[in-house]
């Protein structure tokens, strides 16, 4: 299938959990032993849990044995009660914000930035593909914006829209727009010519060509692009929140540093890891549903 040339590989980050959903056992295969079946069914989640248990156990042991300071690297026995007690907050009185609220604030920023970035990237990619002149004029600019570190936009964002959500969304947008747009142009460019020729000879106009051929043909690459951009957005917003946008999960961590409360920092890190991982799984599920024809072959 020529369409598969456009697919990109999943990021290495999900190489291990990828196998968490093993393919259904084939009926034709000889029945394997019970232990083998258990390993096949639960092997990866089990090793996932086991690996973490070992690491946390060593951590606990190291803190108890005094290998490192539990004030700098608080062990699970301190962090988990701290998390459960709901003490992971910053600010006082009406300014006081908790962990869940911080997560919510950060997630809204990412989602809005990601959606705006995606829409703008596809929109600009559409114009670049449709108008030859724009490919010459706009694409070089987009390509030069792409590698700029998102944190570099923070002073600019704050100067234009002040601190808070708009600035964070701006930073997320700038972090992902350039690379998303380049990836989208590449994805549309690599749609096989034959698909376009067939559609045109069957009478498809420009709008129909985009809707029924170019978008679906590029969808696998676009979905991978969204997942990669999600990671970039996630990092950009946290960096932005640490670098002056005084709210959200990043701010929670930076306050932990300033108050020398490493448990707070640890809780923030756990939240970032867990939420990021969960959302990537969700996006992966969405990807499988949206580009259903890709797995079939």
């Amino acid at each position: 299938m020529t369409a598969q040339a456009a697919t990109t590989h999943a990021p290495p980050a999900d190489a291990a959990p990828e196998a968490a959903t093993p393919p259904p056992p084939r009926r034709a295969a000889a029945a394997p032993s019970l232990s083998r079946r258990l390993v096949r069914r639960f092997g990866t989640p089990l090793s996932f849990v086991f690996a973490w248990a070992v690491l946390l156990g060593l951590w606990e042991l190291g803190a108890a044995a005094g290998w490192f300071s539990d004030r700098i690297l608080p062990p699970p026995s301190q962090t988990i009660p701290f998390l459960l007690a709901g003490e992971a907050t910053v600010g006082f009185g009406t300014q006081r914000t908790g962990l869940l609220e911080a997560i919510g604030v950060t997630l809204v920023r990412i989602s809005v930035g990601l959606v705006l970035g995606l829409v703008a990237a596809i929109g600009v990619a559409f114009l670049i593909l449709q108008v030859k002149l724009l490919r010459a004029l706009v694409l070089p600019i987009v390509q030069s914006i792409a590698p700029i570190s998102p944190v570099a936009w923070v002073p600019f964002a704050i100067a234009i829209v002040g601190i808070g959500d708009p600035a964070a969304i701006f930073v997320v947008f700038m972090a992902i727009f350039g690379s998303m747009c380049c990836a989208a142009v590449a994805a549309f460019d690599s749609v096989p010519q034959e698909y376009r020729k067939v559609a045109r000879s069957l009478g498809a106009g420009t709008a129909e060509m985009w809707r029924t051929v170019l978008l679906p043909a590029a969808a696998p690459s676009l979905m991978t692009m969204v997942r990669m951009s999600f990671f970039a957005a996630w990092m950009a917003v946290l960096a932005g929140e640490m670098a002056g946008i005084n709210s959200g999960l990043g701010y929670l961590i930076i306050m932990g540093q300033q108050m020398y409360n490493m448990k707070l920092v640890m809780v923030g890190i756990i939240a970032i890891g867990v939420v990021g991982f969960a959302l990537d799984r969700l996006l992966l599920l969405a990807q499988r549903r949206i580009v259903w024809w890709e797995d079939a072959q």
Binding site: M1, T2, A3, P192, E194, Y195, K197, V198, S201, L202, G203, T212, V213, P216, A217, A219, V291, W293, A296, Q297
Partner: peptide, 16 residues
């Protein structure tokens, strides 16, 4: 509209 094209690859759209 009166002309149809066929290639070596069937080029059926896999998403339909």
């Amino acid at each position: 509209r009166d002309t149809a094209l066929i290639f070596q690859q069937h080029n059926l759209f896999p998403w339909m």
